[in-house]
Structure formats: C-alpha cells, structure tokens
C-alpha cells in the first residue's frame, strides 16, 4: 500500500504527517468533529505508514482527545459549578476557553511546521512519548 506520495528528497511519510497536523488544526478551527473522524480514519488506514507519519497521526489524535477534554468537559464543569447565569462564571469560562483553545492551536502550528520539515514532534504536556525510530 502506498503510504504517502512524496516529492523527491522528502522523508517518507511527510505528506501524511502534514495532513494529520492540518486535520488537527481544522478540528480546532473550522470543522470540529468531522476533522477528528478523518484523523481516526487515517489511524486505521495507515497503521504501517512510515514512523514519521504514524507518530504525527498518533500525536494529533491524542492531542485532539485532550483538546476535547480541556475545552468541552472542563468548560462544562466550570459552567455547571458556577451556575449558568452568573457573570463570574462567564468571565472564567470565556477567558479559560480562549486561553486553552489558542494554546492548543499554537501547539498544532508547531506540529505542522515540524511535519513540513519531516520531523517528529511531541505535543508538550499532552502528547505521548515518541517512538525511538522517529526523526526529530
């Protein structure tokens, strides 16, 4: 199975890695849910992709799961604990959401930059350890 279409001179798996990071960003920015499903599909289809590609797929899936927890679950907890119509609830919830969301986007940008360069990258704090054979 052709695991990715590479330009000459690119590390194998670069294109797939770029697609994975782009889907991660799209999930946060444009099409939440849909892009995540596409990532899951990639995960199933490209199990034997080069380590570079597979590690980006793994990283972005686990980071997306964390993003879901940090953005949806944590915000729901803030609103449930604070009460739906308390002004302070909204001050905390909106500020928290904006900070968490933009931090996750910045991580994704760096992930995309690494993918473009054919390097592996571990999401800070929320990413799982990288496999040994991954180009850094």
């Amino acid at each position: 199975m052709p695991s990715s279409t590479n330009e000459p001179g690119e590390r194998p798996g670069t294109t797939l890695a770029i697609v994975a990071e782009s889907l991660y960003l799209a999930n946060l920015l444009l099409i939440p849910g849909i892009a995540f499903i596409a990532l899951l599909v990639m995960y199933r289809r490209y199990r034997d992709a080069p380590p570079l590609a597979f590690s980006h797929i793994q990283q972005t899936i686990s980071a997306s799961l964390w993003a879901g927890a940090l953005l949806i679950v944590a915000n729901a907890v803030i609103i449930l604990l604070g009460g739906y119509d308390g002004p302070y609830t909204w001050a905390v919830a909106i500020t928290y959401f904006t900070m968490a969301h933009s931090t996750l986007i910045l991580f994704g940008m760096i992930g995309l930059v690494r993918a473009l360069a054919g390097q592996c990258w571990r999401y800070p704090l929320i990413g799982r350890p990288l496999p040994e054979n991954c180009p850094k």
Partner: peptide, 14 residues
C-alpha cells in the same frame, strides 16, 4: 490582556 478581558466580560454582562 487577561485582566482587561475579565473586566470586559463582567462589564458586558452586568
């Protein structure tokens, strides 16, 4: 920025 954002959300709400 964060303090002004907090202030602004409260201001808008109240």
């Amino acid at each position: 920025t964060l303090f002004l954002t907090g202030a602004g959300i409260l201001q808008t709400y109240l």
